[in-house]
Design a protein around this nucleic acid. Structure first.
Lengths: 209, 209, 209, 209
DNA sequence: TATGAATGAGGGTTCATTCAT
DNA sequence: TATGAATGAACCCTCATTCAT
């Protein structure tokens, strides 16, 4: 009877379509790159006419922005919820979290790192802010651990970039079902990271206090 | 002068134009990505009409292929000529070579790593072959050094990927004139790489000889 | 209240919405032209979703037809009710009526004269019939006055078009609050029209009576 | 042999195509209105693919701007060359020039007056400047004639608008081959215009000097 | 070798309209 | 009566490429 009748079903349907657009776009962007994917391809993957996409996203750029901001938000939220078990080294905790999270979402990660340059300046700035927030987590771990004498890094920011680059490269070559299990990859990289920041024997600073 | 005069000059001029096309395309591809750059943009950057590009490259794809194969060939050639001074550790030699070479050619490196997916299968295969040749150099160094007990890597291929990813990420953030000199970057990364593959104290095999 | 309650209110609400659609469409058509205005723009101006427009008008063309036929009907009805005061010259009566009516409805007038070509043939014919009815009023005045010797026009139809064109052009440049009042404009144009059809001195027939 | 070999034929062909685009667009704009005409329609009328239009005009808007500025420029140039024969009243000279020029170019005139609102602000300003230059010609004639006592207009600017509106309306109804010849139309309108600005008998100012 | 006009396809986006709710 | 999702066609424009000159 109300003027806005029962739009609940419509809204639900719309949200589902938007989600299918996101998923289709993510796969296509990951495989071909943002610039090489057309709205027609996305709409075909969704099973809808091209114009229908514009009921859910105002522009193609907005789809990309949505994917990237959503990815960063979920990554940071997942980190908040990934509580470090007692006795586990913070760096180990971060590295394992990072590898697992990224190996489970190769498309999101690939798009997030490859398509930064496809973002318009405003959107780029928004994503960059989130990326820095994430990298700062590792920088803080390295800085605090160095102060405590557990690690020895000369420049925590540079070390952060080096480690993130190393870890983020994994999904570009890792293929599930290959000769290495995810756990094996995790072990190999964890070892390398830990050694790369380990205090040099003989140079270990004295315990603080 | 005969009717078909001055072929030599024309040839020279043509070669120069081709080189300007390469340079313009490289910059544009690095900044915007292959798919987002049009032949018109390239021709405008060269100062020529679009049709003229086709006197030098049969297709846009061929420009990319040319850039990537040239880059790989020059990289490998440069490595061949970079003789390791006596007394220098092979890994150090490689890392320093890699960082310096890549910091001097950020556009080539960026395109070579970002636009692999823009290559048609045949061209992709050709570039991949060269990339593997280059990575094998590091893999061999790591494997030999591990056998000799100078390094300790469990899986030389995985370690190669980790190290290459780490080093190749440098030009994405390094800016000349910033707070870090190239030498400083080189030192920081060299240290991390060396530690990451160093024999664990206590497990270090005895010196060979 | 029965299940189909409040039909009276709904009907009222619907009529109000239809009126708001008419007003919004009129303004938009006047400013941008029929072809350049989208149903979405109209619905946005009304504060309603595009689909809702179709509860009130079957097509965009019908909105235009409604506006134009309504305008012509109201113009003719207003003329019927505009009784000429005794002693006032019929041409003066018509000119003053026309100027005042049109200056008070600049958008209706503008649309009525500019968008004739946007009407589909059937609607065009309907509007044209009304326009001719209106123009015939002036033609008759001119013809009768010429017969009576008050005016001197060679071709009453051509004179009608000339005068209507002259008068109808006013709203395209007249701006309220400018240096001229509506009355001043009325005086200036009335004088010109009267002189343009006045009997030539020397040929002036004797006063009737 | 030169680098820019013999492009004369190309350039000529291009100029001809551009001219055919102008003519096709003019006819279509006059018949349907700028907003209702698509680039596809224009290209079809020219016998060319849509993309080819963009070799000659950067946007659809530029075609309109070109048509309108060209029209105004040619109108003003034609006026410059239309020397007034001795003994001919300046107003008569202007009215006859205007009617003939406009009856010979009904499409240009129609587009020039109907599509002012389709011009983007910058282009609108440019066209308006030219229109004012043209209207000023008539204003000056009326003002000078009034000073000299040949005409009697209270407000030369308003009279200009009234006369221009009257005359410019002609091509909207005049059809060649109808019952009236161009000369007849010219005579009828000239008479009305002259009378509309004629000094009222008894109010004629004394001869200057 | 370079021009500039042209092609044919396709780009992102908007259109009027429909329809289940 | 209003919503919001969808359609199918069309919009303006740009694309890589060709070709006569």
């Amino acid at each position: 009877m109300a003027a806005h009748a029962l739009p609940a079903q419509n809204r639900t349907k719309g949200r589902e379509t938007a989600e299918r657009v996101r998923k289709a776009a993510l796969t296509l962007f990951a495989n071909s790159g943002f610039a090489a994917v057309s709205m027609r391809e996305i709409s075909a993957a969704v099973g809808v006419q091209p114009g229908a996409l514009y009921n859910h996203f105002p522009t193609k750029q907005d789809i990309l922005k949505d994917l990237m901001l959503t990815h960063m938000a979920e990554l940071l939220a997942a980190w908040e919820e990934a509580h470090r078990p007692e006795g586990v080294d913070p760096l180990e905790h971060f590295v394992c979290f990072h590898i697992r999270y990224h190996l489970d979402r190769p498309d999101e990660v690939f798009v997030a790192y490859m398509e930064l340059r496809s973002l318009e300046p405003e959107n780029f700035a928004a994503v960059e802010t989130e990326r820095r927030r994430y990298e700062t987590i590792l920088t803080d771990i390295l800085a605090a651990g160095t102060t405590a004498g557990r690690y020895a890094v000369e420049d925590a920011k540079v070390a952060t970039r080096a480690i993130i680059a190393m870890l983020t490269g994994i999904p570009t070559w890792y293929r599930e079902g290959g000769s290495l299990s995810k756990d094996a990859v995790e072990d190999l990289y964890l070892t390398m990271v830990q050694k790369s920041v380990a205090p040099t024997p003989g140079h270990a600073p004295r315990e603080a206090g």
